[in-house]
Write a protein that binds this DNA or RNA. Structure first.
Lengths: 162, 162
DNA sequence: ATAAGTATGTGCATTATACACATAATGAGG
DNA sequence: CCTCATTATGTGTATAATGCACATACTTAT
């Protein structure tokens, strides 16, 4: 263990600290509720992340979606049913694979996510108030790179069938 | 809306995309389980984040802890009881305020989090394999700053009693 | 053509969760 | 010193979310 490695260990530990802070903040149900309230909307908080992901990830199957939210596919399947009964999303048979029932955002759902996004952007601007554009751009670039590396990390994915 | 603002909007949207990826990855229960398995440990996955936070945040009360994990304090209270019965944490009456029962990491719990940290660091090194030390240092610095800004953001905290 | 694999959905039992409520301790004001 | 509002914690209980076992429909490989 040389100096360089020790230095990196410290950096990684510091990074993990920040990551915990960030994930904690993002995970607070109060945060979603405040966001919805501020946007003048009402939606079950369990359904909120699913709706946002459907809008972001476009036509997507239940299994992929379940992998994203970290829940069993049966759970997500039921959540989608509820979103569908609220006319916020639609299901359509997959074009290439007819086993897949692709979930798509519906007009009412899109209107909702648009309002949420607007509110979120307003907040984000406040958070980055005293950042220069260059700093922000650098940060966004590094975050993008980190997110990609993390997603490709085998330890992050589901365990292979042994 | 001038060019500068539009540019920032794009940056923020890109950032949110990455944030979703990162938080999704961190939230996967499979990730915790894989981490535990790799470290040769066994622990209920609901208890895992609580244990880690107790180790990180040192002697801490139930309310503060509940705020961090985004759950009701009664839920966290029960989780701590379970951790205590496993001899992973200890409770002690607060030194300054005797209402608080501070939760402290126990030797067995510390041994567990140490092994987890070691495994986590090994993984992190793999993720940042092709980053230069400078890039990593810059990233860590910006993440730290972001985490602080996010934590101070009123929209992230609990709603005030209105 | 048959079998193996994958995507989805339902019945059901478990349990995590939060609300209502109770207790103990603190701190402010009279 | 003595209330009284406030805060930290914990228990009983009802609700709801979750995941497993299982079934069905479709795809792909042999």
């Amino acid at each position: 263990m040389n100096v360089q490695n020790t230095h990196i260990s410290v950096l990684l530990r510091d990074l993990h600290r920040s990551l915990i802070e960030i994930v904690s903040a993002m995970n607070r149900p109060q945060r979603d509720e405040a966001l919805l309230r501020e946007a003048g909307l009402s939606l079950d908080r369990a359904l909120f992340p699913v709706l946002v992901l459907v809008e972001r990830l476009g036509p997507i199957g239940v299994v992929d979606l379940a992998d994203r939210v970290g829940r069993d596919h049966t759970t997500v399947s039921r959540q989608i049913s509820r979103l569908e009964s609220l006319s916020l999303v639609t299901r359509q048979v997959g074009t290439h694979d007819r086993r897949v029932r692709e979930v798509v955002i519906a007009p009412a759902g899109k209107r909702m996510t648009d309002r949420i996004d607007a509110t979120r952007e307003r907040r984000a601007r406040a958070v980055f108030d005293n950042w220069s554009t260059d700093e922000l751009a650098t940060f966004v670039g590094l975050m993008h790179r980190f997110a990609d590396a993390l997603t490709d990390d085998p330890g992050t994915k589901a365990a292979e069938p042994a």
